Amino acid sequence: MSETSSLLGQADGDKATGRGSCRFTLADVAHARTGDKGDISSIAVVAWAPELYPLLVEQVTEDALRAHYRHRRLGSVRRYLLPRLNALNIVLEDALDGGVNSALNLDAHGKSFAFFLLTLPVEVPPTLRALLNPPSKSLSDHSQPISPARSLS
């Protein structure tokens, strides 16, 4: 399966009966915000509903994060669980090309890191789909192919 077709997702299980998980983006499950300190980017990821938090814990792993940001050649990737807040704190070291005062890139603060993280594909079972924000179709239910960074229109 190509990277594009795997990103667009496939329903697991029987589509006719509505059983099985479907692939959505992390934006459907959570919201995020980025902060920075030196060459470190910190991303808070907060589930839209407490029932969605276990999906974050299960699928937004350090390995998944490293793979998602592989183009950045990061140092360490750490994930901290914040169950009382239904949130994760993601810490990406060596992420900002030396930090705000050293970086020559257009996003020296790394503010786009949270938006990019929200494009991460996640599997959502049918029982939790009503909690998605906004309640939406799975990536495989769209009639036209969509880009990894889903359009807000």
Rank of each mutant, 00 (worst) to 15 (best):
A16D: 06
T61I: 01
S6V: 07
L106E: 13
L52Y: 02
D107W: 11
F116R: 11
A130M: 03
D107Y: 08
T25Q: 12
V124G: 12
D36G: 04
R79E: 03
Y80E: 05
A27P: 00
S21C: 02
V46K: 15
W48L: 06
L85I: 00
K37D: 12
K15N: 08
I43L: 08
Q59K: 08
Y80K: 02
P121T: 11
A95G: 01
L92S: 09
S42N: 15
A47T: 12
S138K: 02
S41T: 08
V77H: 02
F116W: 15
H31G: 11
S41Q: 11
S102Q: 09
F116M: 08
P54F: 13
T127H: 09
P54K: 08
S42Y: 12
G110V: 12
L85F: 15
N101F: 06
F113G: 02
H142N: 06
V77L: 10
P135E: 09
V46F: 03
H31I: 11
R23C: 06
L117Y: 15
R70H: 14
G18H: 07
T34V: 05
S151Y: 12
D97V: 00
I146P: 00
S140P: 01
S41N: 13
S42R: 15
S143F: 06
F113V: 10
P121D: 12
G9F: 13
G110S: 07
G75R: 13
S147N: 09
S21V: 05
E93P: 05
V124E: 15
L106V: 01
S153E: 13
G20W: 05
K137A: 15
V91N: 02
A11D: 06
V46N: 08
A87Q: 04
R66L: 14
F115T: 14
S138L: 08
G99A: 01
R73Y: 12
W48I: 07
L104S: 10
S140N: 13
P148K: 03
A44V: 10
G98V: 06
A47P: 09
H31F: 14
A64W: 05
Y80I: 06
A67R: 06
G35R: 14
L74N: 10
H31V: 09
P83W: 04
T61P: 11
S136Q: 13
